[in-house]
Computed example of a mutant assay.
Amino acid sequence: MPVAEAPSPETLPNDIRNLSYAGHFIVWVMRTAVACAPECRMIHREFSHAFGPHVEAGAKAFERVLLALAKGTRPITLARPGHVQMTHDELSLLALFAAGQIGDGARCLAHARWLMGKARPEPLCEAVADLGILLARNGRILCQAPDAVPLTGCAGEPARLRVV
Rank of each mutant, 00 (worst) to 15 (best):
A4Q: 13
E5W: 10
P7I: 07
P9Q: 09
N14K: 04
D15M: 06
Y21C: 02
Y21R: 09
H24Y: 14
V27L: 03
M30S: 08
T32L: 15
C36T: 15
A37F: 11
P38F: 03
E39Q: 14
E39A: 15
E39S: 15
M42K: 13
I43S: 01
I43C: 01
R45P: 00
F47M: 12
G52E: 10
P53I: 14
A59D: 12
A61I: 00
F62D: 00
L66Y: 03
A70R: 14
K71V: 01
T73R: 10
T73Y: 04
R74W: 05
L78W: 04
L78K: 01
P81R: 01
M86F: 01
H88A: 14
D89P: 06
S92R: 14
A95E: 07
A95F: 00
A95R: 08
L96S: 01
A98N: 09
A99N: 07
Q101Y: 04
I102V: 13
D104Y: 08
G105C: 05
G105F: 08
G105E: 13
A110F: 08
H111W: 10
H111R: 15
W114C: 10
W114N: 12
P121C: 00
P123N: 03
P123K: 05
C125M: 07
C125Q: 01
E126S: 11
E126G: 07
A129Y: 00
D130G: 10
L131E: 01
G132M: 00
I133P: 02
L134A: 02
L134R: 02
N138Y: 04
G139I: 03
L142Y: 01
C143K: 10
D147F: 04
P150G: 02
C154L: 04
A155V: 11
A155K: 10
A155I: 09
E157A: 14
R160I: 08
V164E: 12
